[in-house]
Design a protein around this nucleic acid. Sequence first.
RNA 1: GGUCCGGUAGCUCAGUUGGAUAGAGCAUCAGCCUUCUAAGCUGAGGGUCAUUGGUUCGAAUCCAAUCCGGAUCACCA
Length: 591
Amino acid sequence: MSIIAQVQQSTINSLSALFGQTFTEKDFQVNQTKPEFEGDYTVVLFSLVKSLKQSPDALGKLLGDHLVANNPTLFTQYNIIKGFLNLTVSDNYWLDMLNQHHNDACFGKKALNGQRVMVEYSSPNTNKPLHLGHLRNNFLGWSVAEIFKANGYEVFKTCIVNDRGIHICKSMIAWQLFANGATPQSTNNKGDHFVGDYYVKFNDEYKRQVEELITTGKTKDEAEKEAPIMKATQQMLLDWEAGKPEVMDLWRTMNGWVYDGFDITYKNIGSDFDKTYYESNTYLLGKATVEKGLQQNVFYKEADNSVWIDLEKDGLDKKIVQRKDGTSVYITQDIGLAMQKYDEYKIDQSIYVIGDEQNYHMKVLKLICQKLGLPYADSIYHLSYGMVELPTGKMKSREGTVVDADDIVNEMELVAKEKTEELGKVNDFTNEELTQLFHTIGLGALKFFLLRVDPKKKMIFNPQESIDFHGFTAPFIQFNHARIRSILRKFELNGEWSMVNGFLPLEKELIVALEQYPLILEQACAEMNPSAIAIYVYQVAKTFSSFYTEHSIANAESEEKKQLRLRLAEMTANVIKSGMQLLGVAVPERM
RNA sequence: GGUCCGGUAGCUCAGUUGGAUAGAGCAUCAGCCUUCUAAGCUGAGGGUCAUUGGUUCGAAUCCAAUCCGGAUCACCA
């Protein structure tokens, strides 16, 4: 049980004994004591004052005396300042905690709880390579999945690949028109980039044709509809849906190129999936749903044969669920896919990592599922995250301001290389070890930069700042891990030790922080928020760094102190490694 | 226009089931490497928590109004 829970419980017990009233942990607040006051944890008394008809000072005195008298192994003393009851936790409590967990790589992690959770993330289109926005999505989804695992859930990572549709046909048409049979192999280009280039070519040519038509007197709308390349693309989509062999062949070939490229990127950034769904397999899934909805009168049919749902009573709009030609739209496919996921995995919770631009869509999806009475409807959760923007504004593929995922990872690794060589601490590494280290540092810095911000908020990616390896960054945390490992390679922990003179302030600060790790893991899971871990791990590393500078471990004042500090260092390294692992960031032994 | 989200230091962000003098990093300035890795440490300056009103022992946090920014409201996905 965490110390904060023990403070809550003992306070509840004392209040019950003193006043004969029953309280819960929600009736009063327990905070970590501010550094300028004496004590470790603080009970805020104000909320209790009214119902107990006591002044804050009188209540504090009664409660403080009772707590210390009845929990002698937990509390040693207390003080009251303006309605805040500051409790000092006994050194023995902290020592027990340290002895129990300093060597525990699984500290804070929970046993299986029988719940099954699915996390869908990444969800790329196969017409262009991944960019910075996808990276935030990938890192978030992967991390949230790991955080759920650490909290005892059985987790399934999934990905829906948007591998069909008009946007895919655009790349295909452009390839037919301009490629002269070129392939990724013949041009020595990564497959996803190769195909993405033709998507760009399509847009260039489309724009050119539209302008040309406008000069012949067409309106913009007419020109956009009549541009030959657009008509060809629309025809290709029809051919695809009809299964025309040469179109299917080209589609399979080009998607294959893209998948080859994605595989490299995913492997490089450490994304993995237990199951991949393809839109080309799911896009017809809505049909049965539409039938069911019509029978239940959840949906209704318009005169032109299109099918709708009216969500106006729920504060939303009317939404189409099937076109007049009988084909299903995006939302309908999603209902089908949700159904399929549930049937296959019998999940208790289904999390969708999707940008906040689709908040409305996801609200509609869940609402429709609920109205259809589907068993999994309430378990749908949209983990909505904000867009990544540049200092110059939004990323726009048409204006070439998109930060490519492969490029940015490479750049980060390059910066890691430069800085490492500058410092010259690992000159004895082999080339292989160096490559691995640059990857660990560069990719780690990028992941941490994207995960340290609250997912819900949009964030600004400043290329200059992101490559800073100082301060609130992964390299700083990795550096502290490496410093600890360096010490632990040199000195043995002695099995027999005892403590003599109590903790120094920085020792105390560190051990108090370490004790909080299990709570942070719970919080990060409840909020589906990796940034809680990022902030916490940084706090731990920072505290250790001050401690490290101030107090020598190797040349401690006494053998007891040395043993204490070695254990503190070891536990710090374990917590850093564990927390960073949940963010997908590795920590090196040396750097 | 409807709905939703946001506005905290020069910049990027923490902090919101209401708690003590609002915190970090970057940037700026001043110190610190014969001792365990200086990707570091210590200190300084920097704030009308968008604005106004309300709720109360107490508000960055809750409520209302206003201003500003963004997303969304397709027979696109």
